[in-house]
Each structure stands twice: as structure tokens, then as C-alpha cells.
Design a binder for these strands. Structure first.
Lengths: 183, 183
DNA sequence: ATTATCTATATCAGGTTGATATATGTAATC
DNA sequence: GATTACATATATCAACCTGATATAGATAAT
């Protein structure tokens, strides 16, 4: 997905600074997508100079100044148009689609070259990690208000539910079948 | 994972050309990792000049010549050493780890901007796609011999089993919950 | 007072991808 | 038998993105 469409999409959920967009990628979106500062800031500048977003400098009492971007009508129109025209391209992407690079899988692929001891450590920590992630997906307690908008999206609820189910399945499989890597 | 370690690991399963390594990424490894020709060929040249692999030019009767690379003792040692020292780095990567960019998820996230008609099309085709992938993972019939080595690895069986289970879970979830995106 | 950490924007070297170039051989179509 | 399309095979490179780094104001901790 084009970085412009993505930034516009996130700004459609409410006005935000570049730093806050990055926080969304580091936080609730971290398991699904990410962009670096090196992409976010130039994209926002570009969107602004083409009037797809407007920008207000906010002076904050307890923090550095920030530039808050708001999507314009023109920007909303561009985003919707891009989404519609590219939608079918994204069907074959995603979990087990074409964008995945799993270093953990590569490690498993070559696990026969690892000492059994190390393989045990790796699998134990992997299961712990998966369980932590599962808890994250199920967590429904208080979160910073600027991220709450995102969590209330129907689509996020759908995806969090999917992720939880997949994690439960995955953890079960690993616990039941990890011995197969050693025999 | 370093591209050198990865190429050595694949060559440890048997001698191969750069083109054949790419075929592994396009075929059985496509859901887990990939490297482009622009990475594979220079890496192989680099490994060769440092004696981690040896190379034989093969003249073929019915196809263009190819360079077949064989891992050396030195190369095998480097690979094992790299795997061991970096193993713990890869635990938190992978399915729902830090390497995923799911354009399908982004589309779902912004699905409220799509006409219902298009959303239906997208979800129908997604389910079809997932079912095709599931069949691929379950397929156990004849395959080209150069890919058979890979399929006989214990680790591949483990991962294919995991992928199948996850796909079944995922398909079930999507079919049961896709209506939530519309209400 | 100094160190560490968080917020906030910005830039850039280095590395990877996707596209393209080149070449040989096979199969299909005309 | 000529032309088109496609698969095998290697190689290179512009364009793009990331991860690192720089800068800077403010708070908290030691």
C-alpha cells in the first residue's frame, strides 16, 4: 500500500503528528505493518504541499512543539479513491501472504544445526513470547486516549480477535509438536 | 538473518545454483521468507571469493549453462557458528513477530471507506485464496526432485503442519466474523 | 549537576527490491 | 519455417526504505 494512502488513512481517524503516527506503528499496529520516521516525515511534508493534509504548529507547555496534521476533503477523496482502485491487489498479501519475512521460521528450518540445548531454550522462549503477545491482544484495560480511537474501530476488533485465535492455535501446535524437531 | 547464513543454510541441503535458490524462495519458502536475485547473486559471489562455497560451471544440453555452488567445510562451520550466536535474536520474529507487513490488514483497517460491494468481493476472494493456500500446504503429491529435499526436512514438515492449522483456524474465523466489519 | 529518558522533527548512508538487460532453448501458433 | 511467447539463467542498477544518527527541549532520577 502506498505510504501516502496509509498516512491519509491513519489521519482519517483523527488529527495527529508524525511522531504519533509512528507510535501507532510501534504500538497497536506493530504486528501488522510499520513505517519509519524516514518515510513518515517526508510523506507528511509531501501530502501537505499537495493540500491533502493541513498542518497546525502546536506549542505544548511540557513537551517540544509538534506539527499536527489534519486530513482535507481532497485528502479523504484521494485515500478512498486509492483504496478502491488497489483493493484487489491486497487480497493475496498478509498473514502467510507475500510480505512476510520470518526469521524464526528460518531458524526452525536450520534447527538441526543447533545444539539440542539451544533449541530447547529457543522453543521455550518462543512459547513465552507467543503467550505474552496473546495477552496483549486480549488486553482490554486502559490505554492512552490517542490510541483508543484506533482500538474502537470495528476493523481493529475483528483483527484482534483473529490474532488471538491464531495465537492460541499456534501456541497449542508448538507445544504439541516441538518434539518432532528433535527425533 | 544475514543473507550469507541463509544462502549457506540452503546450500547445506544440497548443491544449487542461484536460480534454484530463488526458486526455493518462490516455491516452498514463499510464505516465510524471500531474497531477490539482486541479493542472491552478489552474495554467492562473495561467499565464493571467501571460500565458503565452491562453484562448478555446468553445461546443460537443453538449458543455458549454470553455476552450481557447493558449501565447503569452512562454509558449514560459519553457518553453524552464525546460527548459534544469533539464535536468540530470532525468537521474537516471525508470524506476528516484527517482520510482517500485511497489506490485507491495512485494507481491513480502512474497510469502512470501501463500498459494501467491494468489501464483499475482497472477503470472498480472500477466503478462496486462503483455501488455495491451505491445499498447497496439505499437498503431498509429486514435486520437482530439487525441491523434494526441502520437503523431506523434519523442520519443513513441522512448519507445514503449523501453517495448515493456522490457515484452517483463520478461514473459520473470517467466515464466521466477516459480517462484523459491516454492522 | 549530571545522567538518562521521553517527546519531537529531520536527514542520510547503506542495503534490498523490482525492473530491466542479455542470452539460449523450447513450445506454440500462424 | 517464421514468429511469438515463455522458461531457464546470470547480472546490474535506480529507486526506495530502513536503521542509525543528529538536534533539541523538557522531565525525572541519582
Amino acid at each position: 500500500m502506498q505510504k501516502e494512502t496509509l498516512c491519509l488513512g491513519l489521519l482519517s481517524l483523527g488529527p495527529r503528528s508524525g511522531y504519533e503516527i509512528k507510535q501507532m506503528f510501534e504500538g497497536p499496529l506493530s504486528d501488522f505493518y510499520s513505517l519509519s520516521f524516514g518515510t513518515i516525515y517526508p510523506t507528511l511534508n509531501n501530502l501537505q504541499s499537495n493540500k491533502y493534509v493541513s498542518c497546525k504548529q502546536h506549542t505544548q507547555s511540557k513537551k517540544p512543539d509538534k506539527k499536527v496534521y489534519t486530513i482535507t476533503k481532497k485528502g479523504l477523496a484521494l485515500m478512498k479513491s486509492n483504496l478502491l482502485s488497489d483493493a484487489t491487489e491486497y487480497i493475496r498479501s498478509g498473514n502467510f501472504g507475500d510480505q512476510i519475512k520470518s526469521e524464526f521460521f528460518l531458524l526452525i528450518l536450520f534447527s538441526k544445526y543447533l545444539p539440542n540445548e539451544m533449541l530447547d531454550t529457543v522453543m521455550n522462549e518462543r512459547v513465552l513470547y507467543l503467550k505474552q503477545k496473546l495477552e496483549q491482544f486480549k488486553y482490554d484495560g486502559p490505554i492512552p486516549s490517542e490510541l483508543a480511537t484506533l482500538r474502537n474501530e470495528k476493523s481493529i476488533k475483528f483483527v484482534r480477535g483473529l490474532a488471538s485465535t491464531l495465537f492460541e492455535t499456534g501456541i497449542g501446535y508448538v507445544e504439541k509438536n516441538r518434539h518432532l524437531l528433535k527425533e
